[in-house]
Nucleic acid binder design. Structure first.
Length: 291
DNA sequence: CTGTACTCCTGGGGGC
DNA sequence: TGCCCCCAGGAGTACA
């Protein structure tokens, strides 16, 4: 799925269109997503306007003017497209696009901006691992989606000390600990691999074996890789693009992720990137410089 | 407590 | 061309 940087970029891209916009109509496909839509989903939405858009972990939160908030998680393959005025803009670029078919359009929202311009928001999700929910705005933090979530990695007060506190005595491999949203939110398979590579930390190291110094470096690199990715995506999403939805410039060049067999980017290292499986998911790392 | 296996799904790509 | 198998950026649950 979209990890924190992608969700942040999408949220930021939606802000100028959605904040203040009024929901004129909502239509749903006949498929359910990860969960059923909540009772009265459409009724709460239609006629409401969006106040603020926020991000928490990998969720987009759309605060409405009726004390409810829309909670959106993109799962593995969720994409959001805005269409209006003969143009469309798709906020994805990180997920395969060729398979996009309207048969997987599950949520369509007709909107009207404060200036009276009409447009549609379309949520497309082939694998349907995403979710849309409705939560009382003042109960978001204790809702089932958010109650167990760990700290935001980009918060100023999140540092190596805070990470070690969250890890506690956990002997699980550091790779899996970082994917655990109860310990730290927003990281997924890609950025965990990248941050561990940058920090020269072996993904199979027990989480509780990290020194304070290693944790400091790891957190510094987590922030770095997330901020670079947000910076790369953020600048491309300012306006509607033409109908092919091509944003460009959002391609990541990964150091370790998906580079099995490639030379370690550090020429002085001379190692080769390897792929192993942890928790049923691929881990890419350099066994020579990650200790 | 741990770790693992499996679940929800579709689609792309490689091998044959 | 097709078929089969593996893989995919998430995350919850069940079970030993």
């Amino acid at each position: 799925m979209p990890e924190l940087p992608e969700v942040e970029t999408i949220k930021n891209g939606l802000v100028p269109f959605l904040e203040g916009a009024k929901i004129k109509n909502v239509s749903l496909s006949s498929y359910r997503l990860r969960f059923e839509y909540p009772e009265g989903f459409k009724q709460y939405l239609i006629g409401a306007s969006f106040n603020k858009l926020k991000r928490r972990a990998k969720y987009i939160i759309g605060e409405l003017d009726n004390d409810n908030s829309v909670i959106i998680h993109l799962g593995m393959s969720g994409r959001i497209t805005l269409m209006g005025n003969g143009h469309s803009l798709t906020f994805d670029d990180y997920v395969y696009q060729t398979g996009a078919k309207t048969v997987h359009d599950h949520v369509t929202i007709d909107l009207e901006t404060t200036k009276g311009e009409e447009f549609k928001l379309i949520y497309n999700d082939p694998r349907r691992f995403g979710l849309w929910d409705l939560v009382k705005t003042d109960e978001i933090e204790k809702s089932k989606h958010f109650a167990h979530l760990g700290p935001e990695p980009l918060e100023d007060d999140f540092d190596g000390k805070a990470l070690l506190e969250r890890i506690g005595k956990k002997a699980a491999p550091i790779k899996l600990a970082l994917l655990n949203q109860e310990i730290i939110v927003g990281l997924g398979n890609i950025y965990v691999c990248e941050a561990l590579y940058m920090s020269h930390i072996h993904p199979e190291r027990p989480a509780n074996s990290l020194s304070q110094k290693e944790a400091d470096l790891l957190v510094k690199n987590i922030k770095e890789v997330l901020n670079v990715a947000i910076g790369a995506g953020g600048s491309t999403l300012n306006d509607f693009r033409h109908a092919d939805g091509n944003l460009g410039g959002f391609q990541e060049r990964f150091l370790a992720y998906d580079r099995e067999g490639a030379d370690c980017p550090d020429k002085k290292c001379g190692g080769k990137i390897e792929r192993i499986v942890q928790g049923g998911r691929s881990t890419f790392f350099c066994p020579k410089c990650q200790k």
